[in-house]
């Protein structure tokens, strides 16, 4: 089963057995065809198109200095944004889950806000603040600092888009572990930093890794927001997704799909790592999760045997 222990093996089998064979086969086939056409076919196409003129032609893409610069810039941007959002995620989840204060739900709503803003619109927001005629643009320009159409703008856009990722994973993880262990550490005389490092972090390390993984995948792949603020200058403000677009619009399809396959491989690795982490987190927190669902939602879970 998908979540061993959370769903009940025996009962699921008996439920499935009640559906006639033809309807089971029909539903499974329907779902598989749908997923095959919608998900698998486009993924396979990336690699097929990249290798259309052979492996050599595909690999030639990466000899181009602009392509190499794009890869370097993408690594740089992710290397700055992910740690920034990781530190924020730690601070936010510590404040929210280990303390009580007024306005907590407002804070949680604001943390999730970037998820509901279109990437293009978040790029526009940054232009309104840092653009040539924006709030701080002229002042920063006079200091010789350019944000929009430069690397800092790309970093800011990426930070905005990936803002909630780490916090979102850490908050439920810290919430579910409660406060007792930290309180015991305080009584034993541990400092705040010691508690975080020796008590809290070991307990939430998989959730933290999970958040970082998702944050990184999005940071390296972000297109809309970065596209708006980048200016698309080759060898200066072009990340890998933007370089894919440029190559594609020049009808250089092999190179575009070769660059795209780098991102597709990254996506596949992310999925594998994510799935393995999920299995591990499930094994560790099965008991906790089960307890919490029972308490929170008796109507859905029903009385326990």
């Amino acid at each position: 089963m998908h979540h061993p222990g959370v769903s009940y093996e025996g009962k699921s089998v008996s439920r499935a057995a009640r559906d006639p064979l033809w309807s089971r086969v029909f539903l499974i086939a329907g779902a598989l065809v749908f997923l095959g056409v919608l998900l698998v076919l486009p993924l396979a196409t990336v690699f097929v198109e990249a290798l259309r003129k052979g492996l050599g032609a595909a690999l030639e893409t990466f000899a181009n200095p602009d392509a190499r610069y794009a890869i370097w810039l993408t690594l740089l941007v992710a290397g700055i944004s992910v740690p920034l959002n990781l530190v924020f995620g730690l601070a936010a989840s510590w404040a929210v889950t280990k303390h009580d204060f007024r306005g907590k739900s407002l804070l949680l709503t604001l943390i999730d806000l970037p998820f509901s803003v279109s990437p293009v619109i978040s790029g526009l927001f940054l232009i309104l603040v840092f653009g040539v005629n924006g709030w701080f643009g002229p002042m920063l320009n006079s200091l010789g600092l350019q944000i929009i159409f430069a690397v800092p703008g790309i970093v800011l856009a990426t930070v905005f888009i990936t803002f909630p990722f780490v916090a979102r994973e850490l908050i439920p993880a810290m919430e579910s572990m409660g406060r007792e262990e930290e309180q015991a550490a305080v009584i034993l005389g541990a400092s705040g930093w010691q508690i975080l490092r020796r008590v809290t972090l070991p307990n939430v390390r998989w959730a933290l890794l999970y958040g970082v993984l998702l944050c990184n995948a999005r940071a390296m792949g972000e297109f809309g927001a970065v596209s708006v603020v980048s200016g698309h200058i080759r060898g200066e403000t072009n990340t890998v997704p933007l370089h894919v677009e440029i190559l594609y619009n020049e009808y250089n399809f092999v190179a575009a799909f070769a660059m795209a396959s780098v991102l597709a491989i990254l996506a596949l690795l992310t999925l594998v790592a994510k799935t393995m982490l999920e299995w591990r987190i499930q094994r560790l927190q099965q008991q906790v999760v089960l307890e919490r669902t029972r308490h929170r939602d008796p109507a859905l879970v029903g009385p326990q045997p």
Binding site: V46, P241, T270
Partner: peptide, 8 residues
């Protein structure tokens, strides 16, 4: 679709 960049 969460993991694959939208441009790809």
């Amino acid at each position: 679709p969460f993991a694959l960049p939208t441009a790809v």
